[in-house]
């Protein structure tokens, strides 16, 4: 199974997260954008929005970035949600489909957040089983993203990069490497982000990394007096995350890169400008690869 649908592949260029408030503008103006990514959950019970998205998908490569599969849920995948996702995939023919290394469903309750997993052998078996089931049902490979983490479980376990690498190796899934989440998670645990990214780079097989996410985050003060970074997708990409992105490109090469912005949503032109900054770095990476080749 390929990571990207050959019909309308997502290019190794900078794309934009498409949110409902911008949809009408995209439909009417057909702005410059290499590709768009949406949350499929926003379209599962909104026929009007889905109809509009279909028109957009006719003109741009599209990626579906789910938040509700709950790949880490001990009770398995919600069949109803999987069916709704299948329906959308049939309607939209997305080039990429992804979700997160996290859970949100337990005991008949859906908690709308990407909740943390302990990186244990038990969790690895379970997530591998869930990811394989999803890929089997969808008839395609999916990407799994590293979420931002705000706590760690004590006890013997793998590192997150090791866990993700093993998951990809055994299940065949791809990896969506969220560089902002690497930064947020490392910072929150008072680790050096560059060193943590280095662990990701060493752990992951290059061919498994099929997409990169970039986003802004909020900086708060936690109860213990130390700063706490919250992955709220509500700001520009900060300078340290751009630096990590350059480190990522230098290691893995150009990859489809998405600018995520979900809260305090600015005008579309701001997202385009942010994507242009990512594109500059992608272009530079391409140039260096070309220079090395000749």
């Amino acid at each position: 199974m390929d990571l990207s649908s050959p019909a309308s592949p997502v290019p190794a260029q900078a794309g934009i997260g498409l949110r409902l408030p911008h949809q009408a503008q995209v439909m009417s103006e057909r702005p410059r954008a290499a590709w768009f990514e949406v949350h499929p959950e926003n379209y599962m019970a909104n026929a009007q929005a889905l109809s509009e998205l279909e028109q957009i998908a006719a003109h741009y490569p599209l990626s579906l970035h789910a938040v509700g599969l709950s790949l880490g849920s001990a009770e398995g995948i919600d069949e109803g949600h999987l069916e709704r996702l299948k329906f959308l995939i049939r309607r939209l023919s997305p080039a990429l489909v992804s979700d997160h290394l996290s859970w949100s469903v337990t005991g008949g309750r859906y908690l709308p957040d990407l909740l943390p997993l302990p990186y244990t052998e038990e969790a690895l078996r379970l997530v591998t089983r869930n990811v394989s089931a999803v890929q089997e049902a969808l008839g395609r490979t999916i990407l799994v993203e590293n979420p931002s983490t705000y706590l760690q479980f004590a006890g013997p376990a793998m590192s997150e990069p090791e866990f993700m690498a093993e998951l990809s190796r055994v299940s065949g899934c791809g990896v969506l490497l969220d560089v902002n989440n690497v930064y947020v998670s490392a910072s929150n645990q008072q680790l050096e982000p560059g060193r943590v990214l280095g662990e990701w780079c060493r752990a992951l097989a290059a061919k498994s990394v099929a997409e990169i996410h970039l986003a802004g985050h909020a900086l708060l003060e936690a109860g213990d007096g130390a700063p706490l970074r919250i992955d709220d997708h509500g700001d520009h990409v900060c300078a340290p995350v751009w630096a990590l992105y350059e480190q990522t490109l230098a290691h893995f090469g150009p990859r489809p890169t998405l600018i995520e912005w979900d809260t305090r949503l600015p005008g579309l032109e701001v997202l385009q400008a942010e994507a242009a900054l990512a594109q500059e770095r992608l272009d530079e990476c391409q140039r260096r690869a070309y220079d090395r080749a000749i």
Partner: peptide, 9 residues
């Protein structure tokens, strides 16, 4: 709490 990851409804 919601039973499904579909907050529109």
């Amino acid at each position: 709490p919601p039973a499904a990851p579909q907050l529109d409804d």
